[in-house]
């Protein structure tokens, strides 16, 4: 697409654009439906009226105070995870190189558990603990995995190793905790959006507004980096700097998502892969991955609320259930094609 003669031009691939529009539509529609459900059902018509500011006072309270923040949290966390997954998989050139596989989410969990069990911190302290845990884990994995050049398999393998160590730390923490602490911790560990209010959503949205565009701008460099460091350097990509910046964005997005909703499994792994199969475009596919993540999480959260109603499942149970099947399929396929 070219505007202003030849001075401004943007490449838009028709198939990607269609996928993006469809995903966005799906996310919005499911989001509206999610607002209708709960202990007190509200019709779609009333939900839309309320969102437009013309609903009854009761609906106003239920929709905008109780349900909307949760829906926005689902969309935001999903988008962050989807984009972070795309960044990590692109940098490691491996579909398994996503933050939940390479130990980042386990590290976040360790940080959160230390807060819940050892330090007895409140929700804010737990969120901070998970962010710090995730970042420290990322630094450790990066330092251990990084040798000049090849990052791919080393990142995945080292990440899995570091993740396993931290997993045992987490188990130890759980074992030596009291029953109430263990319940709270286990609840956090599953990943849930229950009871998310505006105080959780505001920082999430604020950080996303800053992070998503920055990450998106790095997309063109990531696409070049997928051809190898030398090839990227040959066309003028400042390889080390851009890769580091992209890693920081990916880590920040993952930490943000985990701080808001706990370690939600598999969205980061699955979203970029599904998108690639839909758009048939090589490259990091950052925007469609973010939209796919948002759609996946809002659908999962909707299903988690609806499936065993009135019992509400934590959304992490849903994504882990569906994602686990997908991971098994991906592993067998990669193994057959001799890549993993």
């Amino acid at each position: 697409m070219r505007v202003a003669g030849d001075r401004i031009s943007v490449r838009v691939l028709p198939r990607s654009a269609v996928v993006c529009v469809l995903l966005l539509a799906a996310a919005v529609v499911v989001g509206v439906f999610a607002l209708t459900t709960g202990d007190y059902p509200i019709s779609v018509y009333d939900v839309v009226r309320t969102l437009l500011g013309r609903g009854s006072e009761a609906n106003e309270f239920i929709v905008t105070e109780l349900r909307l923040p949760r829906a926005i949290a689902a969309l935001g966390v999903g988008a962050a995870l989807g984009m972070a997954g795309a960044v990590f998989q692109s940098i490691s050139r491996n579909p398994l190189g996503s933050p939940d596989i390479v130990g980042l989410t386990v590290g976040s969990a360790t940080g959160a558990l230390l807060q819940i069990i050892v330090l007895g911190g409140g929700p804010v302290a737990v969120a901070v603990g998970s962010v710090v845990g995730g970042i420290l884990t990322a630094v450790a994995v990066y330092l251990l995995a990084f040798r000049t050049g090849a990052l791919g398999y080393r990142l995945v393998l080292v990440g899995i190793g570091v993740g396993a160590v931290l997993e045992s730390v987490n188990s130890y923490l759980l074992v030596r905790s009291s029953l109430t602490e263990a319940t709270a911790a286990q609840f956090w560990l599953t990943g849930s959006l229950n009871g998310r209010g505006w105080e959780d959503v505001r920082p999430l949205v604020g950080a996303l507004v800053a992070l998503l565009p920055v990450t998106f701008a790095l997309g063109r460099d990531l696409r070049m980096l997928e051809m190898g460091d030398d090839a990227a350097r040959a066309v003028g990509v400042p390889v080390e700097r851009r890769r580091f910046a992209a890693l920081l964005c990916g880590i920040a997005l993952t930490a943000l998502a985990t701080a808001t909703a706990g370690p939600i499994a598999f969205v980061a792994l699955v979203a970029p892969q599904l998108v690639r199969r839909l758009t048939l475009v090589t490259g990091p596919n950052l925007v469609p991955s973010a939209l796919m993540g948002a759609t996946l999480l809002i659908v999962s959260d909707f299903a988690a609320q609806r499936l065993l109603a009135p019992t509400q499942l934590p959304v992490g149970v849903m994504t882990a259930g569906v994602g686990g099947v997908y991971l098994a399929w991906l592993l067998t396929r990669e193994w057959r094609s001799g890549r993993a």
Binding site: M227, G228, D230, A231, R233, A234, V237, T282, G283
Partner: peptide, 20 residues
């Protein structure tokens, strides 16, 4: 680096063609 890449090109020995 972009300025250099407009004047000097390089065909490296090992480049990876992304899948598909």
């Amino acid at each position: 680096s972009k300025e250099v890449a407009r004047r000097l090109g390089m065909l490296p020995q090992t480049s990876i063609a992304p899948d598909g």
